[in-house]
């Protein structure tokens, strides 16, 4: 079991904050899908906005914008920078 020291889930990052990914807890097709978008350990992610009802949330990753739902984002572990 991998432990993510002092990491927090991506879903808890406030709008406007930037963080760095330390690990993915997702599995199956979503894990690969997310990796294909460049969401891998070491990548910087900026939380840019929430949808009108608070979910999903849009993030900037490697120059592109990707929206993720809260449940999915909570399985991505990050460190604030």
């Amino acid at each position: 079991m991998i432990t993510y020291d002092k990491s927090i889930p991506l879903s808890q990052i406030a709008v406007g904050c930037t963080c760095r990914i330390v690990g993915l807890e997702l599995d199956g097709i979503l894990r690969r899908r997310i990796q294909d978008l460049g969401i891998i350990p070491g990548t910087a992610v900026e939380c840019i906005r929430r949808g009108p009802s608070g979910d999903p949330t849009a993030y900037t990753i490697r120059g592109t914008t990707v929206a993720l739902r809260k449940e999915d984002a909570s399985l991505i572990h990050v460190h604030l920078i």
């Binding site: 294909d36 978008l37 460049g38 490697r62 120059g63």
Partner: peptide, 9 residues
């Protein structure tokens, strides 16, 4: 061209 990094992948 606007997101070359991800596309180079």
């Amino acid at each position: 061209a606007t997101s070359l990094e991800r596309n180079l992948n």
